[in-house]
Simulated assay, not measured.
Amino acid sequence: MKTEIRNFAIPVTLIGGGALGADDLAVALALAPRLVAADGGAAAALSAGHMPEAVIGDFDSLSRADRDRIPPERLFPISEQESTDFDKVMRTVSAPLMLAVGFLGARVDHQLAAFNTLVRHPAQRCILIGPGEVVFHAPPRLALDLELGAVVSLFPMCRLTGRSQGLEWPIDGLEMAPDGRVGTSNRALGPVRIETDGPGLLVIVPRSALGAVTRALAPGAVGAASMPGPGPARA
């Protein structure tokens, strides 16, 4: 097994083996041109005419035929079965931003596992792109330029508190929890500011806000997408 971690200086598109919309990959690659696949996501990449720069996972969802099409130096097997392939990528890829497609819109258990992975790696800036929405883990301070009336759902994956500006229903003074108060179907009054007192808050906004979310999570990184990035770094 390789002991390398992939380091990228520019945003990365991550493709999984779940439901993939007709334009999901193209939308992500336009903002994040380096392509990494999580296990079976490599098959979807190949079908779309793209060769991933790295394929990471236990390879239980990747056929031998597709695996043989990928140069061996681009395969990064991690055989343990205690984590998902998404988690394996999140802990072995370093990038200023990741746009993940093929993780939402199919099996509910896979989506819940993806949400779990987001909060287990709070330092990673990763956006899950779905059919109509995008989901990401809120950093300690978040500033989003949203349109008036845009739906903003806040879902806590643990007990937490925070403050907000620009939401129709502020979260100031509220304790949020997965088995208590949640913040779905809130609305933006314009630009939104959210602060949390700890990790664990998922933010769900319309897919049309993807550009605003990328700018909020990785200022300047998307603008540098045309610049070449480095190769693998030895861990």
Rank of each mutant, 00 (worst) to 15 (best):
L154C: 05
P131H: 10
W169K: 11
F136T: 03
A150H: 11
R159E: 15
F155K: 00
L189S: 13
G162I: 07
A177S: 15
Q165H: 13
C158W: 00
G173F: 11
P178G: 09
H137E: 05
F136R: 05
L160W: 09
M176N: 05
R187M: 10
Q165K: 14
A188D: 03
A188R: 05
E147R: 11
R181M: 08
P140M: 08
H137A: 12
A143K: 11
L167Y: 13
A138K: 09
E133Q: 14
R181S: 01
G130K: 04
L142P: 01
N186C: 08
A143T: 13
F136E: 05
P156S: 01
P170E: 11
L189C: 12
G173W: 10
S153L: 05
P191E: 07
G149N: 06
V135T: 15
P140E: 10
F155E: 00
I171H: 12
R141Q: 09
G180N: 01
M157F: 04
V151A: 13
L174N: 09
P140H: 08
P170T: 14
T161H: 10
A143D: 14
R163M: 11
G162V: 07
D172H: 13
G130R: 03
R159W: 02
L160R: 12
G180S: 01
T184S: 15
D179W: 04
D172S: 14
V182R: 06
A177M: 02
R163W: 12
I171C: 13
L160A: 12
A177Q: 03
S153G: 11
H137L: 00
G149E: 08
V182M: 09
G180F: 02
L146S: 03
R141N: 02
G162F: 07
T184N: 12
A138D: 07
N186T: 07
V151G: 00
N186P: 05
T161K: 13
F155W: 05
P178Q: 05
P156F: 03
L154F: 05
T161E: 14
P131E: 13
G190T: 01
G132C: 01
P131G: 15
L174Q: 15
R163P: 00
I171W: 12
V134M: 02
E175I: 12
V134P: 00
G190M: 03
R181N: 00
H137S: 10
P170G: 13
D179Y: 04
D179F: 04
A150Q: 15
D179K: 03
D145M: 03
F136S: 04
G132W: 00
L167S: 08
G130N: 06
T184M: 15
A188L: 10
E175F: 02
V134G: 01
M176G: 03
E175V: 14
E133S: 10
L154M: 14
G162D: 09
H137G: 07
V134H: 02
T161I: 05
E168H: 11
L142N: 01
P170K: 12
P178M: 06
F136Q: 02
R141L: 06
A188I: 07
A150N: 11
V182Q: 08
S153F: 09
P131L: 02
V135P: 01
L142V: 01
V134W: 01
M176A: 14
G149H: 07
G162M: 06
P131A: 15
R163V: 06
H137F: 03
P131R: 13
G190I: 03
G166L: 07
L148F: 15
L174C: 14
R187N: 00
P170V: 12
M157L: 15
S153K: 08
A177F: 06
